[in-house]
């Protein structure tokens, strides 16, 4: 089963329902990728909440379930952080992945906790381990590491053994 090459051309992917929905509402979409049967949509930082509302309340294929929020650190490249949202449509059994790229300065993005309370712990975990801030989060504190911990362990410039 050889791998099909990833499709990254926005024009070719226009038909995908989630992307079509976002483009129709003129949400600022940065790009898209279809790879290994999985759809990824890159959204500009300012429009992540709009994109989530649109997809959640889409009458045709409501992505009503937030599976996961996580982050990938591409240090030393810029934009350094990719915040990754995995949405699931329970009625249609479809998945879509949203991504927001953030620069290393002081990375911050709008929280989606007001849309899905499920994001509460996920975003706290990302804040804890990557240092990405979520504006509008009701209780943005460390989740797993001790409260007085210094640094964000899952960043790539943080050594695996930790600082001693």
């Amino acid at each position: 089963m050889p791998l099909a090459p990833a499709i990254t051309d926005l024009e070719q992917l226009r038909e995908h329902p989630a992307l079509a929905r976002l483009l129709a509402a003129s949400v600022a979409v940065e790009g898209a990728k279809f790879d290994r049967d999985e759809m990824t949509i890159y959204v500009y930082r300012s429009s992540i909440r709009d994109a989530c509302v649109l997809l959640r309340d889409d009458p045709g294929c409501p992505f009503n379930f937030l599976s996961d929020v996580t982050c990938v650190d591409w240090y030393p490249q810029e934009p350094r952080f990719e915040v990754v949202y995995h949405l699931l449509s329970i009625p249609k059994k479809e998945r879509v992945r949203l991504k927001v790229r953030l620069n290393s300065g002081s990375p911050a993005v709008e929280s989606v906790t007001p849309l899905w309370p499920a994001a509460n712990f996920f975003e706290r975990e990302v804040y804890d381990l990557f240092g990405v801030r979520f504006n509008g989060h009701p209780y943005l504190r460390r989740l797993l590491m001790p409260e007085d911990w210094e640094g964000h362990p899952l960043r790539k410039d943080y050594p695996v053994e930790g600082y001693r």
């Binding site: 599976s67 996961d68 996580t70 990938v72 995995h86 699931l88 712990f121």
Partner: peptide, 29 residues
């Protein structure tokens, strides 16, 4: 519940990122 693994590869022999979506973490909320 839904146990999910998000694996990112950069083409090398070590995973660039492995994230586990834990069903319990969400259920605890």
């Amino acid at each position: 519940g839904e146990m999910g693994y998000y694996v990112v590869s950069d083409g090398t022999a070590k995973p660039y990122r492995v994230h586990m979506r834990s069903a319990c973490l969400a259920n605890l909320q």
